[in-house]
Design a protein around this nucleic acid. Structure first.
Lengths: 121, 121
DNA sequence: GTCCCTGTTTACTAAATACTACACACTCAA
DNA sequence: TTGAGTGTGTAGTATTTAGTAAACAGGGAC
C-alpha cells in the first residue's frame, strides 16, 4: 500500500482516452471487467494503493490494448510466466540475463538475438 | 506453508555431507549463519514449511557451495535480481524469453548465445 | 548422573499483500 | 427535481508469507 502515482496516472490516462469513445471504460465498468472493485481501482489510479496483482494488470493491458509487459514493468512487476521460463533452465537463463545486463545490451540488440533464435529452428 | 519435501531433502543432504567434516554445519549453527531460526530450518528440511525467501536461499547456496540459481529453482523461486534485469527492458526481454521457450532452446543453445554476447562487445 | 549438544514439536505472530463494502458528493439528462 | 451515473473517502478485512520462542526427547562425553 505504498502507492505508485506513475502507474496510476498512466492507467487513468489510457482509460479516459478509451472512455471518450466507449462508456464501458468508466471507472466502475472497467473495474468490473478487470475483476476488481471500483474503490480499489480509484485508489490505484490516484496512486494511493499499489498496483494490483499481475493477473489484473494483464487484464487491464488487454482491455486497454497496450503491451502487458510494459504495463507490468511500470507496476514494478514481471509476468509470472517469465519466471516459469527461467525455472525451466535456471542456470543457463540466469547466465544469459546477467550477461545481457553486464554487456549493456540494448532493446535493439535483444531483438536481434530474438530474431536469430526464430530464424534458425 | 504448503511445504516442499524435495527442496528440504536436498538441503538436508547437502548440509549433512558438510557436517561430516565440519561441525559448523549442525542444524542450529547452519540456521544461525543463514539468518533463520533452527525451528524454521528443521521444518524446511522436513518439508513441512515452504522454502525461505530468496535472500536466505542464496545464503544457503553460498555456505553449501552450490549454484544459487539451481537451488532457487528447486525452491520454485527466481533471483529477484533477474526480475530487475527484465524490468530494465521489459518488452525485449519478455520476447526473448518466450521465443527461447517456444523454440525449445536447450541449456546448450542458451549457453551458445551467452558466449556470443560476450564475444562481440 | 548430569551437562551439552543434537534435531523436533507445539503454539503462536508480525508484516505485507491484496483487496472490499458502503456511504458520500457531484453532475447531467429527462 | 429526481434518478442514474460519475469518481472518492472512510474504515475496515482476508489471505499469504515468512517466520519465532520455548519446551522437549534423545545421545555421548565426562
Amino acid at each position: 500500500m505504498a502507492g505508485n502515482p506513475t502507474f496510476g496516472r498512466h492507467i487513468r490516462d489510457l482509460r479516459e482516452a478509451k472512455k471518450a469513445v466507449d462508456p464501458a471504460f468508466s471507472l466502475r465498468q472497467f473495474a468490473l471487467r478487470v475483476g476488481i472493485s471500483a474503490t480499489f481501482l480509484s485508489k490505484i489510479e490516484l496512486g494511493v494503493f499499489d498496483p494490483p496483482k499481475a493477473e489484473h494488470i494483464i487484464k487491464m493491458a488487454e482491455l486497454l490494448e497496450v503491451d502487458a509487459d510494459e504495463l507490468l514493468a511500470l507496476a514494478n512487476r514481471t509476468d509470472p510466466e517469465l519466471e516459469e521460463i527461467i525455472k525451466s533452465e535456471p542456470r543457463a537463463m540466469a547466465d544469459l540475463l546477467r550477461t545481457a545486463r553486464d554487456r549493456g545490451l540494448t532493446a535493439d540488440d535483444l531483438e536481434r538475438i530474438t530474431r536469430y533464435m526464430k530464424k534458425r529452428s
